[in-house]
Design a protein around this nucleic acid. Structure first.
Lengths: 230, 230
DNA sequence: GCCAATGCAAGAGCAGTGCTCTCGTATTTG
DNA sequence: CAAATACGAGAGCACTGCTCTTGCATTGGC
C-alpha cells in the first residue's frame, strides 16, 4: 500500500519512528519530565536542531507518544472485549487489560491519565484514540443489555444527565438506556481511579499488593452493572 | 506557644511562608512543571542561591506544597464529615468537598493526585496528611454501620483481601466488617477517579459539564455502601 | 561588653534545557 | 540540467537547578 515514493520520504518515516522509539525509551527510564529532546538527538547521533525537522516542539513529540499510548491501550482492551465467554468474563478481561497495560507501561499511563502538562491542551487528534477505551467498555455493557441478560437499573436521571447520556450513547449505536450507560461511566471512572491509585502509590500500606482488591472491585462493578454471575 | 525565640528565627519562619506562598501562586499560574526556583526568588527580591537555605532542592519545595495541599483537602473533608444531617447527606457533603476543593485548586490537586514526578518517592511526612481523606470517608461509613442504619454487604472476601481489610481497619478503630470497608475503598477510588477525569478533561464532550454526572454517581455510591435514602 | 561561631544573602559559575536562525549540502521536481 | 525544496550541522539565546566561595550580620558563650 505505502510504496513510500521517494527515498527521502522513506528515510523520514524511518527516522520519525526511531525518534519516537528512543523517546519512549527515555520516557520509561525517567518519565515525561525527564524526556529531553537533546538527549534523544544525542542518542540517535544527530544534533538537536535536526530533530525539529520531525517534531516542531517537545510538546508535539509528547502528543505523538500520547496518541500511540492511547492506541496501544485501546487495542488491548478491544482484544479483551472480543474474547469468548460470558459477559462477566469479558468484563473481567477488559478490566485486567487496562490494569496489565498500565503496570507494564506506568510512565505512558501517567502521560495519558496523569496530570496533563501545564498549559497543555489535548489536540483534536487525541480524542479519537482516547475514546477507544470507554467505547469498548460501554459497548460491552450495551451488548449484554441487547441480549437481555442484564438486570436493567431503575435509577432516575436528572434532565441534564439524561440529555448527556443520550448524546454519549449516540456515538455507539444502537442506543441503550440512559441509566445503564451512566452506570457504565461510573464503572469506567472507578476502574481508572483504582488503577491510577495503585500506580501512583495511594494504595501503599493498605490495599497493597493491589491484586485482590482489584479483583474484588471488578466483581462488585460487574454486579453494579447488572451483569449475570459467571 | 511559639514565642519565636530570636528575631532570626522569626524572619526565617516568615520567609519560609512567603516562599511557599509565592511558589503556590506560580503553581496556580503554570503548573508544577512551570514552577521555577529562580522565578520564585526573583519575585521575592532575592537571589536564587539564597533560596536553598530554606529548601534544599526543588523537590523539597514541592513536597512542602504537597503536604499543605493534603492538609487543606483533609481539613475540608473532615469539616464536611462533621456536618449535621443523616449519613447520606454527610456522604454527599464529603464528596462535594473533594470535588469543590479540586476545582478550586486544580494544579494542587494534580500535584498530589496526578502523576508523581519521575523518580519522586513520597516522603514519610506525606503519608499522614494523605490518609486524612480515606480515613474521613471510611470513618463515616463505619459510624453509619455502628448505628445500625446500614444494610451490610454479604460480599465474600479472598483471604488476602480480608487480611488487608483487617490491617486497614486497624487504623480507624473500632473495627468494621471487611466487606463494608472494601466497599468504602471502592467508593473512594470511584470518587477520585471521577474527579480526576473531570479535571483532566476526560469527560469533555460526553459528561460535560460534570455536575449532574457527579451528583448521580454520589447517590449510586451511597446506595452501593448501603446508606439509607435521605 | 567583647569575640568567636554560626546563619545568611549575594554573586559567579557549571552543566543542562527548549528553541531559533543561518549556512552549506544533498535530494527531488519541473 | 537547473531551480526548488528538504535536510543536517553549528552557533547562539534565554532559561533552568544546583554548587561553591566570599563577605556581612546576628547570635550565644565568656
Amino acid at each position: 500500500m505505502n510504496a513510500s515514493r521517494t527515498a527521502r520520504e522513506r528515510a523520514r518515516a524511518e527516522l520519525t519512528r526511531e525518534i519516537k522509539e528512543e523517546a519512549r525509551r527515555q520516557l520509561r527510564a525517567s518519565g515525561a519530565q525527564g524526556l529531553s529532546l537533546r538527549a534523544v538527538a544525542r542518542e540517535l547521533g544527530m544534533v538537536s536542531s535536526a530533530l525539529y525537522r520531525y517534531f516542531p516542539s517537545r510538546d508535539e513529540l509528547l502528543t505523538a507518544l500520547i496518541i500511540d499510548a492511547y492506541d496501544a491501550l485501546g487495542a488491548r482492551i478491544e482484544a479483551a472485549a472480543g474474547t469468548g465467554g460470558g459477559f462477566r468474563e469479558r468484563w473481567r478481561a477488559c478490566c485486567a487489560a487496562v490494569r496489565d497495560w498500565a503496570r507494564e507501561h506506568p510512565h505512558e499511563y501517567a502521560l495519558v491519565y496523569g496530570s496533563p502538562v501545564p498549559g497543555y491542551q489535548a489536540p483534536e487528534a487525541t480524542i479519537a484514540p482516547a475514546s477507544r477505551v470507554p467505547v469498548a467498555l460501554l459497548s460491552l455493557v450495551r451488548d449484554a443489555w441487547r441480549e437481555g441478560v442484564l438486570t436493567e437499573p431503575a435509577d432516575e436521571l436528572s434532565p441534564e444527565l439524561a440529555e448527556q447520556a443520550e448524546r454519549t450513547a449516540a456515538v455507539i449505536p444502537p442506543a441503550m438506556p440512559g441509566p445503564l450507560l451512566v452506570r457504565g461511566a461510573i464503572a469506567w471512572t472507578q476502574l481508572f481511579g483504582m488503577v491510577g491509585f495503585e500506580l501512583f502509590g495511594h494504595l501503599d500500606g493498605t490495599m497493597d499488593p493491589a491484586g485482590p482488591f482489584f479483583a474484588h472491585s471488578v466483581e462488585r462493578m460487574a454486579d453494579f452493572l447488572g451483569l449475570p454471575p459467571a
